[in-house]
Simulated scan of single mutants.
Amino acid sequence: MIPFLDLKAQYSQIKPEIDAAVARVVSSGHFVLGPEVTAFEGRFADYCRTAHCRAVNSGTSALHLALLAAGVGPGDEVITVSMTFVATTAAILYSGARPVFVDVDPVTWTMHPGSIEAAITPRTKAILPVHLHGLMADMDPIMEIARRHGLVVIEDAAQAHGAEYRGRRAGSIGDLGCFSFYPGKNLGAFGEGGAVVTDRPELAGRVSLLRDWGQEAKYDHVIPGYNYRMDEIQSAILNVKMDYIERWTEARRSLAERYNALLSDLPLARPQPPRDARHVYHVYAVRLQRRDDALTLLRDAGIGAGIHYPVPVHLQRAYAELGYRAGDLPVTEMLANEFLSLPIYPEMRAEQAAEVVSTLRNAAACGPAKPSATRRSIHKAS
């Protein structure tokens, strides 16, 4: 039995530190936006190499507040991708704006910069690239387009803690970066949590107000706000885990290298990050044509596997009113039909990865994922 993710194994390794941190908060009697939150904000800002971090209660809240802080509102459009979790789209709609989807690159699976300019209209306010599976989008051309058109860039880095693009950390390139600390993330709380990072003090200040009912001081509400505060227990847990995130990240990267070597002779497409990127492998996904058959074989063998994501957002029934149809985003739809996510977590052993691949070999007849000529990759290895 190989689980897709083993959170119990991680907890068992750091149990004394976690238990002590939780007990410290309970004994303090201070449970919301206290010293643990402040300490975590400083540590995570340093980790992301940004000047400011504001902790909130979820990654969705982080996206929502980043959009509001950037001035996105009713009548605006935000360019993003459909190959993502629905929270990206939901946050745009929460702000009153309309998501405009562009296709992704067939090699990196992230926002294709060559698709952006055709989607810009007089109503476009922001670009929201998603760093998928732990690999950052091709940020330099995205930023160049945004600056030329006077647009805000908000990074959805919910899956990319510690990822790098040409030496720069996820969340540090755009105007704002948004993270999730959902338990399964590379840096996960024991419940919900999120953060917004930025180098711009006015945006950080705006997020601070918005997350805490618009208060400058207790009962002094200067703008309408939200109850999006992070609690002290989650911050205390994250402060413990900050001591381990690099060790865990390198363990993921080592397992990914192991997978790469073991899968090299199989008829499937593997992740191909550029040489100047640090992929942190929140998800290790491959592509194969008869994906569902392979998924069944793995699960029947007791191996946890999944799909990230089987139905892209533009084809979800919940967002039918946006007016997209099958065929509108051909690369995104191709990937949704071919993605297969294999188990990967820091506590996983190399021999378990070998067992996963051995089982996957039995599905070799499922056929390869054929390269698509629909888009040319701009985010090339160099």
Score class of each variant (00 low, 15 high):
5 L>G: 09
217 A>R: 13
341 S>Q: 12
19 D>V: 14
254 S>T: 15
250 E>C: 03
57 N>C: 12
92 I>E: 00
3 P>N: 10
48 C>S: 14
12 S>L: 11
116 I>P: 00
362 N>L: 13
285 A>I: 00
64 H>S: 13
4 F>S: 06
248 W>M: 08
129 P>A: 06
169 R>P: 02
348 M>Q: 12
241 K>D: 04
109 W>N: 01
82 S>H: 04
194 G>I: 04
356 V>H: 07
126 A>Q: 05
187 L>W: 02
123 R>C: 11
219 Y>A: 13
334 M>P: 00
99 P>A: 11
74 P>A: 15
180 S>F: 04
85 F>L: 13
292 D>H: 10
150 G>W: 07
55 A>M: 07
264 S>H: 07
318 A>S: 13
260 N>V: 02
210 L>V: 09
69 A>C: 06
135 L>N: 07
200 R>C: 06
198 T>V: 11
295 L>T: 02
56 V>N: 02
229 R>I: 13
137 A>D: 00
322 L>C: 12
16 P>N: 08
165 Y>R: 05
352 Q>C: 07
13 Q>K: 14
19 D>Q: 14
182 Y>A: 11
338 E>L: 01
305 A>G: 05
83 M>A: 10
332 T>A: 04
54 R>A: 06
172 S>T: 05
312 P>I: 02
19 D>E: 15
207 V>E: 00
331 V>I: 13
315 L>N: 03
148 R>Y: 14
215 Q>D: 09
374 T>H: 15
339 F>A: 05
240 V>P: 03
168 R>G: 06
251 A>T: 05
346 P>E: 04
125 K>F: 06
151 L>G: 02
267 P>E: 08
340 L>I: 10
286 V>Q: 04
334 M>E: 10
245 I>A: 05
310 P>S: 08
83 M>R: 13
116 I>G: 00
146 A>Y: 01
353 A>V: 15
100 V>F: 05
280 V>F: 06
310 P>C: 09
278 R>V: 13
181 F>V: 02
250 E>W: 12
216 E>A: 14
197 V>P: 05
132 L>D: 03
155 E>F: 05
238 L>I: 09
216 E>I: 15
241 K>P: 05
341 S>L: 11
23 A>Q: 15
351 E>D: 14
125 K>M: 03
370 K>Q: 13
341 S>M: 13
27 S>D: 14
48 C>R: 02
277 A>Y: 11
2 I>H: 06
149 H>D: 09
161 H>K: 07
70 A>Q: 03
85 F>H: 12
261 A>H: 11
167 G>R: 10
254 S>K: 12
224 P>F: 08
65 L>H: 09
92 I>W: 01
116 I>R: 03
276 D>V: 07
189 A>R: 01
345 Y>I: 04
269 A>G: 09
107 V>Q: 09
158 A>T: 15
260 N>R: 13
345 Y>V: 01
202 E>L: 09
